[in-house]
């Protein structure tokens, strides 16, 4: 801890901090608003992550250095990534409709939100909090040491119990997402025998992608007549409606390619002829 920071924290915030607050605070509010107003979950998550990083900066400005780092590492780094992971699982491109379905819900929400916010702000103003003591004395034995001392003495019980809570949460998550297999998995042989018996799609499924230009898994392969083959894309993507149909485009491209090659060939022929 530098002596400068100590002094800054001891008294009312400096001008530098004020500038920092107004700039970053505005961005944080915008980020929060974007979080709740973005149609796609992945955008919301990114906006939230931004807001959280700004909050981490504010923690640092308020002298909570340890917490600021933890905020970046754990919250933004781990928890938000967990969010993104689930978003990916659910479908990254799925956009929500922001149209309200419950009658009067939005109005009530806005009303409650406004009322609540006004009341909170009025309460804070009412409390007349002007006295800032700063953390100088609390950090006298070192910031992290001070935290550690509190955690392992005064809050040791809470600390232990949060440990238990984390374990429980981990077990709970496993239990919730775990699916018990109730029957034996079919072997390769059984699967192939069943395919023969049922007479469906004996050879391997066609591969997606067309002519190496669209080899993404969400683009169906084209049949010889130019129509897309539904079989060539994954069932999951089909269910999500995340298939890009590029058959017409591909044919156009093909045509253009043929033409250009013909032109080049012709030019080449002329060149050869000129030779």
């Amino acid at each position: 801890m530098s002596v400068l920071t100590e002094n800054v924290l001891a008294e009312a915030a400096s001008t530098g901090e004020a500038v920092q607050f107004w700039v970053l605070g505005t961005i944080a509010v915008i980020g929060a608003l974007c979080t709740i107003l973005m149609k796609k979950a992945v955008h919301s998550a990114l906006c939230l992550a931004g807001t959280m990083i700004i909050l981490a900066v504010f923690y640092l400005a308020n002298g909570a250095y340890f917490l600021g780092i933890v905020q970046v590492v754990v919250y933004t780094g781990a928890i938000m990534m967990l969010f993104l992971f689930v978003v990916m699982l659910v479908g990254v491109t799925a956009a929500d409709s922001l149209k309200e379905t419950l009658k009067g819900q939005r109005w009530l929400a806005v009303l409650c939100g406004l009322g609540f916010g006004i009341l909170l702000i009025a309460g804070i103003r009412h409390a007349q909090l002007n006295q800032f003591n700063g953390l100088g004395r609390a950090n006298s034995a070192g910031h992290v040491e001070g935290l550690a001392q509190l955690i392992f003495t005064k809050y040791v019980f809470a600390f232990e119990i949060t440990g238990a809570l984390l374990i429980t949460a981990a077990v709970g998550a496993m239990v919730l997402t775990h699916r018990e297999r109730t029957e034996r998995a079919a072997t390769q042989r059984e699967l192939s025998e069943r395919r023969v018996r049922e007479g469906v799609q004996l050879p391997p499924l066609p591969a997606p992608g067309v002519y190496a230009r669209h080899n993404a898994v969400d683009v169906p392969g084209l049949l010889p007549d130019g129509s897309p083959s539904e079989l060539s894309v994954s069932k999951t993507l089909r269910a999500r409606g995340q298939i890009r149909d590029v058959s017409g485009e591909a044919l156009e491209d093909l045509k253009a390619l043929e033409q250009s090659s013909a032109e080049r060939l012709g030019r080449d022929a002329r060149k050869e002829a000129s030779k």
């Binding site: 929400a109 409650c112 009322g115 609540f116 009341l119 309460g123």
Partner: peptide, 11 residues
């Protein structure tokens, strides 16, 4: 919403 309204009333 009800819960939030209740919280507002409490405040």
């Amino acid at each position: 919403v009800s819960m939030f309204g209740g919280a507002a009333v409490l405040v």
